[in-house]
Design a protein around this nucleic acid. Structure first.
Lengths: 225, 225
DNA sequence: TAAAGTTGTGGCAAAAATGTGTCAAAATTA
DNA sequence: TAATTTTGACACATTTTTGCCACAACTTTA
């Protein structure tokens, strides 16, 4: 499994463990560092770190110093843990390129939510959105846009379109579509697919033509002329 | 919509538009003024302006003059846009009561960061507070305000709203909501969520529509559309 | 070209999902 | 302990989706 890797930097062993535990519970990989210099060493030794959670107050090199150093070479998202929110610090942080703040004490829920929010913003979850021929499919928002305009799709329609787009360019038999978009225990009429294709095409408007009919076989999603 | 209102004063149409666009994108309301006198007129005609962004160099009455006039009657925070950072100017400005400086050219990020920092300093919104579409959620005070008015929410309702807002724009399945807002060991009816959504929507009044139903899937908190 | 086989489409009714009022148990507060 | 609030469940109303059918249109085959 290729989990997203997060580096947690805090000199307090207890706090570090707390944060790490929650991240691990939410399926992230973690790398720990106990001070600023340790963090820099580990960060530059590992190319896969997707996010850094950084305590401000640390011996040797504090959070600002670490941020400044890292920003010379990398845009990796940084979340700063602050004991007390100090306005000037925050201002300084935003200029340095801190992406988010969490002030102690924080709830685990907030921690994980912010982490996910930052990762989303910085498009680490880029797999969540696919763009094909002007159709933007956002799985996490469960949303489809054409030319920036929201298209209202029902659940099945969304599933079907997703399946088409994931398999773009591939001819899909009705049987295959049934097995993948419908539950395996569905034994209805294969022509039900036609009905859904009909609706999808009409909702996609101009772009409906991308769903092509393959005679005697099924359908295929393909962008072209 | 009751966004925070900011007045932007600059004689250069292009610069004014640039600043306004970024502010609007970050959910502020803006009022434009093209010179110092215009600014004074509009400021005293409108009681809701929470912040003024002021260009130093302007015909008729420059930034200093405007600041001096306004400071006779108001403590509204003022951010000064300066072409070049000149220490003497800055000193003068701080004496007059300028809250912050931004020197051109500046990045949009810095602009918004300073605006937020100043607003935070002046307690327009408090720390630990999230504002989305006119809903102000104060996690530490466990309090929600709409248009400055307190909304009474029960514990669960608050938790649910927090979860929605932290995950704004993300489609949330009932299962996911249950796992995050309820305890992991809660195995009740998923439709209990519906009941809470119902209450939340009704308590949020006009803004209840931001909690959107995603058919066959769950709910999503999203502003606009 | 006609017949046979496939797909497109509008409409419809059953099914599924959600909205909502009500109510009782549980938790909280007085 | 009583009163009040919150929470979760349920039933019924409402809405949306889904799957099917019949027939039209189209393609292939003989």
């Amino acid at each position: 499994m290729d989990n997203i890797k997060i580096m947690v930097v805090d000199d307090e062993q207890r706090m570090r463990k707390l944060v790490c535990d929650f991240l691990i519970k939410h399926n992230y990989s973690v790398i720990e560092a106990s001070d600023g210099e340790d963090a820099l060493d580990k960060f530059f030794a590992d190319k896969d770190i997707a996010l850094i959670i950084l305590d401000v107050m640390m011996p040797r090199m504090d959070g600002w110093g670490v941020t400044k150093e890292i920003r010379k070479y990398s845009k990796v998202p940084i979340i700063m843990l602050t004991a007390k929110s100090d306005e000037r610090d925050e201002l300084m942080g935003f200029e340095l390129g801190v992406d988010e703040y969490i002030s102690k004490p924080f709830s685990p829920k907030v921690l994980v939510a912010r982490v996910e929010a930052v990762l989303r913003r910085t498009n680490v979850f880029d797999e969540g959105t696919v763009e094909v021929g002007g159709i933007v499919l956002d799985e996490s928002a469960h949303e489809v846009k054409i030319d920036g305009k929201n298209i209202e799709l029902s659940y099945k329609e969304f599933e079907l379109l997703t399946y088409f787009i994931i398999n773009q360019g591939v001819a899909l038999s009705r049987e295959k579509i049934l097995n993948n978009v419908w539950n395996y225990d569905y034994f209805g009429d294969a022509r039900t697919i036609d009905t859904h294709v009909k609706k999808l095409r009409s909702k996609l408007g101009e772009k409906g033509k991308y769903i092509k009919t393959i005679w005697g076989m099924g359908y295929k999603f393909e962008v072209s002329d």
